[in-house]
Design a protein around this nucleic acid. Structure first.
Lengths: 219, 219, 219, 219
DNA sequence: GATGAATGAGACTTCATTCAT
DNA sequence: GATGAATGAAGTCTCATTCAT
């Protein structure tokens, strides 16, 4: 029977509290631009996106973008930074806990499905994959700040799961990529094939967990 | 004990051997252009690639590209088609066999690691993911010709594995995505993070297989 | 003895005076581009004209043209439209009158010589002739809006002239082309042969009228 | 009652007897290229014509054109020269005769309608008009060799018609353009407006002659 | 701060011309 | 002589960026 899960913050709530000096209106503008940029970049990629379209979608004039971002590339980088900041913070805040590992993993999976796979945020993953070759800095930053840390944390978690007898195979501790791979597939699937072959990401992830921890889990 | 594995064709060998009409030299040129295009597109994406660079890399003049491909988009599509054709053919030729499922899967994994993850071909996967949003036709074609078929075949294979008692969980039969997810991660990892965090794809895939079929497999 | 002729508008004056929305400066730019385009197109034809040259002549940058016209062909069509609009309007406004037909015709001839043969506008006639084959739409539009109407009106006018006894031959009523043919020659001559064989268009047209109506006309 | 007209040569028969050295086959090739060039240039103009299309229409390879003409412009000039040569020769051969002027003029008109207005040759007139601005040399050559001479000859002819009492007005002698203007209109009309407004060129020219010489002419 | 007209570098594409076969 | 693959200059059009208002 599911115990009441500890609340995990909604990612969208974790917003870097307006850096002080910037005006209320200025921040709103900046956010509108970033939101529009996400829509455009995630559909058209970096090179394929026109700042004209970003501006139109944000409801402002083209020149205004340059009041907030020095150029297209900066806008792109800032967009990714703004989207990952909450994730990085959430990872850092994750307290060492003594609950069953499955419970923790299930919460993370749940968070991922709700806040990434089910939203426009999943497109960022495609963006990273798409533009990583063109912006090696971007790939490196992303690895050091997000992927590397997350995998390390998950590896440690799975090692504990083995210790605790929750999981038999040590493979997940050694290759935490095996743990997150289905999540990646779910995120990519959403943007690419959803139209002609819907995929129930939540169900697939549950099946994945059942394989890892054995049937009949925490829920 | 590993039986001698039946030979699987090297993908790169499955090339439509100058389909008759085209001259020897013409085919070579065409292939040189496609090779250069793969390099450029996979790093810079569709919009970010300059045909000038493709031409330079292929060692020809800009205009020559247009003798073989009517425009940039056609070149892009033909590139993907040429890279997938062998895979589709290999899938279609896969004979129904009665060997242990693990053996078949291991051969497929081996093929994938050698011929996709270990070569520039892996970048095509990134290309599909990156450009699928902009070329819905591309995504659909790719799904119908490759992904859909492959997943269906794998699903059937895993269902048989359950029947035969080789695998306990039915999850892989229902969500064959779980089976290929690590392969996808390996392919993406190669292009993005290999430089600062090498990943032994073959070892990871072996670990994956061990999880599926239990320790101590065919090798 | 010549009666005081009713005033006919100068064609160049019949300009749709900034149709409301467009800014003062914007209209000026647009007109400058059209003027430059006339110069270039009439010398080099459609295919032979470089937008670069149009821009240079208009004193603007290449890209600016595209703020006012979506492409080269549109610029070309708009140019012709802008030059014919006043003529079509003048034709439509021509009031039914009861004056001697010769007087009316003389005014029209005068208008034509002054406002077409004597200006850059004559080149448009050469343009239509030159490019009509490549732009069938253009030829058709021109026929329906200008040539067809004008010839019909002139035919009716000459029929009245026969009724009134001003003209003996009915040929001009049946083939109004015979009436305008010298005007066409004058317009073409201007652009082609003027340099080495000047032609006094006005005098030739007077001689033409004398043939039609007999010597000693209204002037 | 019409007297038996003296035979006038068909223009197409007046071909500069193969300049000696050139092979039979070579001349045929050259002529095929010129014929194809006429079709293409007259529809698309000089700049708008692709030598590729000329070659295809002539049934030869692109490079072959360069065996017969040093470049595109030379081909164009040679084309016009080849088309006008017979006309110039016909004009030069025109013997001073003592027949009624009307008879001579009627034969010329007939020749013009049959051999120019009714054939692809009429497009050459449009070509001259179209490209005269871009090739001032062309316009000058055309004036000196064809137009100037023809008009001079016609002027003299009409002067004699006045002397002989065949024509009252001296206008045609002074402005022979008035004589040929309807012919020009007929030629242009054919290429431009024929589709939506057919014009009986022969009938119009007869009406024109009736105006000049009075009703009831030689035929 | 905000605008959007203007710029011009740079991309895709065409096509006259060359030249090895 | 004939071919047609190859070239690369040049043209059309786009779009990131600037700047006067």
């Amino acid at each position: 029977m599911p115990r009441p899960a500890r609340k995990l913050p909604k990612l969208s709530a974790v917003r870097p509290a307006a850096a002080g000096a910037r005006s209320q209106r200025g921040t709103a503008r900046r956010d509108a631009i970033l939101a529009a940029a996400l829509e455009e970049f995630s559909v058209n990629g970096f090179a394929g996106t026109r700042l004209d379209d970003v501006a139109r979608r944000a409801g402002i004039a083209k020149g205004t973008i340059y009041l907030y971002f020095s150029d297209k590339e900066t806008l792109f980088q800032e967009l990714l930074r703004s989207l990952f900041a909450p994730i990085v913070q959430a990872l850092e805040r994750m307290p060492p806990d003594t609950r069953p590992v499955r419970e923790t993993i299930e919460q993370l999976v749940d968070l991922f499905v709700r806040e990434v796979v089910g939203t426009r945020r999943r497109d960022v993953i495609r963006l990273i994959i798409a533009e990583g070759g063109r912006f090696p800095k971007l790939a490196e930053f992303h690895y050091r700040e997000v992927v590397g840390r997350a995998l390390a944390a998950l590896g440690a978690l799975m090692a504990r799961a083995v210790e605790r007898g929750e999981v038999r195979s040590f493979a997940y501790a050694r290759y935490p990529q095996l743990l997150v791979a289905p999540g990646l597939v779910a995120a990519i699937w959403g943007g690419l094939f959803e139209r002609f072959a819907p995929l129930d990401a939540a169900a697939m992830m549950r099946a994945h967990l059942d394989i890892i921890f054995g049937e009949g889990g925490a829920r």
